[in-house]
């Protein structure tokens, strides 16, 4: 076993299902390589961390609009190509099941189990009006400095 632990950091900026799946597959793969993995969620990527159920929190008008218009959780994300008004994600989920590929919620669970650090960007949470209560348990909250702290000594840095 090697003494020096390698690191991988991934920024998930996008809020589409296919891109989130790619990010989580790489994160899980890197964790299986005994690496320390940080997945940093910012802007639309934060939607992958939202709880599916409605959480009653106090919000302003704009924040409420954002909350209604953005997908609520990993199961509701659309595709970046061939979304077809929501039919695309249904088809891809069907095909994934057929090929025994893990679903996005399963990939997220696996990442947590493997010790992948999931970090929500607090600045964009404020912009989109997302509050801690609306995001899943077991994640961390930080800003660009914490991300850079991890990324500086990581050999793999991805922006998805």
């Amino acid at each position: 076993m090697k003494d020096n632990i390698e690191k991988t950091t991934i920024v998930l900026f996008s809020g589409e299902l296919d891109k989130a799946i790619a990010a989580f597959i790489i994160a899980n793969g890197a964790a299986a390589f005994d690496q320390e993995v940080t997945l940093f969620f910012t802007f639309w990527g934060l939607n992958a961390l939202r709880k599916d159920e409605h959480v009653a929190v106090k919000k302003g008008f704009l924040e409420n609009m954002f909350a209604k218009m953005m997908p609520r959780g990993a199961n509701k994300l659309g595709l970046s190509k061939m979304n077809f008004g929501g039919m695309g994600p249904k088809m891809i989920k069907h095909v994934m099941k057929k090929h025994h590929a893990l679903s996005l919620p399963e990939l997220i669970e696996l990442a947590k189990e493997q010790g992948v650090k999931l970090v929500a960007c607090t600045m964009t949470m404020d912009l989109l009006g997302l509050q801690k209560e609306e995001l899943m348990e077991g994640i961390e909250y930080a800003g660009v400095a914490a991300y850079l702290g991890d990324a500086t000594d990581a050999k793999v840095n991805l922006f998805i």
């Binding site: 597959i25 964790a31 299986a32 390589f33 005994d34 090929h99 025994h100 893990l102």
Partner: peptide, 14 residues
């Protein structure tokens, strides 16, 4: 057998 990426290496690691 039958598992898709990234499960084979995740299972192997475990």
């Amino acid at each position: 057998k039958g598992m898709a990426c990234p499960m084979p290496i995740v299972k192997t690691k475990k």
